[in-house]
Design a protein around this nucleic acid. Structure first.
Lengths: 340, 340
DNA sequence: CTGAAAGCGCTTACAG
DNA sequence: CTGAAAGCGCTTACAG
């Protein structure tokens, strides 16, 4: 029923080999033959059977996006989809297909990866941080399976990974605030033990210090990122004798709390007090005023991951250990706009 | 290098056919042989080559999730990922793999689908509303390709689709408000021409009317769903002589505007005025107070889509034209809580 | 209950 | 520049 390479060969008066070569862009076929075969392909609307091609070429032209997926994933982690979009977009350029694989039901660490590698169902794998553990890392490394991990693994390994530089994010925040003329900057962070939060704070403090605007230790708060707690912290901060002229919020939820407290205190943003936050979320636009953001371009991280794995597949000797993307600043209405 | 069915056959002292039959659960193989073969499979850690299996079985065990994906997709449509998670979760139970395909770069409507069908790269397809057009519908129908569309197609076709009942959503909203004792209900909607918005309004009005609480026509607003416009509408509404005791917001952005205006007017929710909104988004929890919601369980729609296509694949004679999911009410703090 | 053999639809050395 | 043939690793009638 479906038309095959033999049909094309017959219609074009050549062998199957020749059709295959045309299909695969071999340069050893004469222009005339190539044209004739292509014409027949067009006419018959021939599209090679993907399963046969994979089988014969011993390659699937497929990349697995390995992640941990649960019922509430879309609400808990809106960034994941954005990363996926980037990965997909980049890989589709090179005719790779991307398949989602969930590790949350693995009965032992690495189960899914082992299956993928042994079954040969993918040529490479992109591992989202949520799916990474030492079992997975082990499997990937021992099989030298083409991969890219999204997010610093956080343990010793020979994995290839992509991440953003959070300390630099803190630095960007500081530089922007200094450029805008703020000098007494406060920080409201997540838990003190949170790695990303502490990296951001570190970059912020170092940069402020380097610019002669040492942060007051009492202007640094650690919270559980819940709105009431953040509002309380903000109130305390604003009524102290070391009240800041700008607040750096470590995440969007904190920014929501700060924004709320400001309106409760009838403080005008950014005239009375400025703030900025890290990361853009689907709800960032709902915060009032729309905040200035130091963003991680997670879509771009997806693009980079896709691009890296594609290059590795094309050139297996390519050695990339890690790739770090730069944060970007998105000017909002919660800090003075210097360009206007 | 990789171990094959021949290795297993040799090690178990049987033929390849027998190993294959064990692998595929044929009941014609003696328990003893089955056990012996399985033991060898275990020992050798044999996993069949997925590409060879697909090829031989003429089936990919893969379902394509067809959608339109752009750079800002994750921000514009947070629901899409939730649907995908549902689809993936359900299909993985039946050992189907799910592959993302983006139609946004198609040069003519249906290009991607045609490729999928001709190349045989998937056994079936789930079409997200954003990727549906008459070209796609045409291709699917003429090839009788197994499919499920998410969202009512909105045009005549023989497609199989899944959607939610938005009129019923409006009815649920009305019933909840009546149960809570509200009687003068207002509606702030999206554009008058928006199908979903008008369906919700229709269900709301009919139900209010049926309960003897006819809605005042002046309490029905159509907006562009931007916060300032919604705030203005809310102010007008609240200062009129027909001020409502409850407002139904057609979407989350409208709820944000209403919530803001209430706090500006120093009205206490839900004591002075109640409101509720449709749909849960990642940022719903950020609205203050946390709103009561009439939600579409899009994750469940994904599950249903996955389940339906799986059943169709297993039993091609199964005819399902459409499947409608019920909205659910999530009690928040913007309407009186009747259960407490 | 088991196995030999053909076949799935391509690709790719190899020969010419 | 082109083609015949082997092969990719399984599955599945069919015969026994």
């Amino acid at each position: 029923m479906a038309i095959t390479i033999s049909d094309v060969a017959k219609a074009a008066g050549v062998s199957k080999s020749t059709v295959s070569k045309v299909l695969n862009g071999w340069t050893t076929i004469s222009p005339e033959t190539t044209a004739r075969v292509n014409k027949v392909i067009q006419e018959l609307n021939f599209i090679p059977n993907a399963r046969a091609v994979s089988f014969a070429k011993r390659a699937s032209k497929n990349i697995v996006f390995l992640t941990s997926l649960g019922k509430e994933e879309a609400y808990k982690n809106p960034h994941m989809f954005d990363i996926m979009c980037g990965v997909h977009n980049e890989l589709s350029k090179y005719n790779y297909t991307v398949t989602l694989v969930d590790t949350s039901k693995d009965t032992h660490p690495g189960e899914s990866v082992e299956k993928i590698i042994s079954a040969g169902s993918a040529d490479g794998i992109i591992v989202h941080g949520s799916a990474l553990n030492e079992g997975v890392a082990q499997d990937i490394v021992t099989h030298s399976f083409p991969h890219v991990v999204i997010g610093n693994p956080g343990f010793e390994s020979q994995l290839c990974w992509i991440d953003t530089n959070n300390m630099l994010g803190g630095q960007f925040a500081a530089e922007h605030l200094i450029d805008c003329g703020y000098s007494n900057v406060a920080f409201i962070g997540g838990k003190k033990s949170d790695f990303i939060s502490s990296q951001r704070l570190k970059g912020l403090r170092q940069t402020m210090l380097r610019n002669g605007k040492k942060m007051n230790i009492d202007n640094i708060y650690y919270t559980d990122s819940t709105i009431p707690v953040v509002m309380k912290a903000t109130e305390e901060l604003m009524s102290s004798d070391h009240a800041p002229d700008a607040i750096v919020c470590e995440n969007n939820l904190i920014a929501v709390g700060v924004s709320k407290e400001m309106s409760r205190l009838s403080l005008v943003v950014p005239d009375d007090i400025a703030f900025l936050t890290f990361d853009r979320y689907p709800y960032t636009g709902v915060i009032d005023p729309v905040p200035t953001i130091v963003d991680i371009d997670v879509y771009d991280m997806g693009i980079q991951a896709g691009n890296t794995i594609q290059r590795k597949l094309e050139n297996p000797s390519l050695l990339v250990q890690s790739y770090t993307t730069l944060p970007i600043l998105i000017q909002g209405n919660t800090t003075r706009n210097m360009s206007s």
